[in-house]
Nucleic acid binder design. Sequence first.
DNA 1: ACCTGAACACCGTTCAAGT
DNA 2: ACCTGAACACCGTTCAAGT
Lengths: 195, 195
Amino acid sequence: MAIDVDTVVRTSVAIADAEGLDALTMRRLAAELAVTPMAIYHHVPGKEALLDLIADESMKQLPVVDPTGAWDEELERFFVAFHRLYLEHPALAQVMAQRPLEGPTAMARGELLLALLVGAGVSDEDAVAALVSLVGYTIGMSLYRLSRDATGRFEGLTEQAAPTAYRLRSRIAATAEHEDAFADGLRRLIDSYCR
Amino acid sequence: MAIDVDTVVRTSVAIADAEGLDALTMRRLAAELAVTPMAIYHHVPGKEALLDLIADESMKQLPVVDPTGAWDEELERFFVAFHRLYLEHPALAQVMAQRPLEGPTAMARGELLLALLVGAGVSDEDAVAALVSLVGYTIGMSLYRLSRDATGRFEGLTEQAAPTAYRLRSRIAATAEHEDAFADGLRRLIDSYCR
DNA sequence: ACCTGAACACCGTTCAAGT
DNA sequence: ACCTGAACACCGTTCAAGT
């Protein structure tokens, strides 16, 4: 039934995107591929390995930075795209949250970012420190945002019953959901590495 | 057998801390409590609710900020403790990654942080923006660090076979695992809100 | 080499019954 | 009110067998 690693991975991504990561089970995937659950194991060692493949495949959507561009602008462009990738694929964010950014594709993108910084005169140490901070910030802000989207908000919390908590939540929600909240903090972080 | 919500939650935390979140199943928990799996459902609606309770219970370990202290120092103290809490309880970080910081305890801590900032003359909007960024940064850096700790590192990656990727990973690992990496980026972010 | 069928050792949760 | 026993509808994965 024309089953290979690529179709397995692509179908997995499609299921996770459409119905959430919980819906992605080996049995569901097999059904989608019109095949027995065990057939998948001839192309992928197991579910963990499948998630690794999904992670790496998805990272290919990250932009490739231009090493000749302005490094602060390139950084902003890259991490805004990173953030957007997570928001558009919540299941991916969920997968990546538990997985080091160590796939071949992620590493290749990392090399480019590092080269960009070092080429701009930043020391090796500072460049790596900057990258780690920016990646951490991006992951955290994405997950934080997604977790607010996912849950039914203000459940059982009315303005009458708990006015302070209610107002705090409203304000946090408004800020966290605003597109610019992420970019604002990102710029603060990037700027701090400019000096 | 002396089963109440508190012992259920505390035992859950103990299992998750000792053996990881995956080991925390309703059946395993029941065994630990010397009770039938179904007994738990008379004290907690279900597993999701149990995870909510674990989350809120754990948040009680976060420090209470001193509203009369220097706000930059208080912020640093709070988020460094937050980071440490996650590192010491990886299962908690895993739970929180998928859950909004909206429990009663988290909200109470948030109120205090907000009061601290507003008391220092920061506008409401900026204060909320600062908190969201700092929380996002802290969550992301914690998860990023934990994900590197969890996986067997450099699996199948030798210096001979792929020298560039190998060196990049080594440098990232060294940076990410350094205690000061988190605090450094945190200070950059906090400082950016001082001006 | 690739796929199937049946089975194993698990999950969370429902439901009816006991005290 | 609190707990039990048996069952249901799932999981990921092993193993032996087919082609």
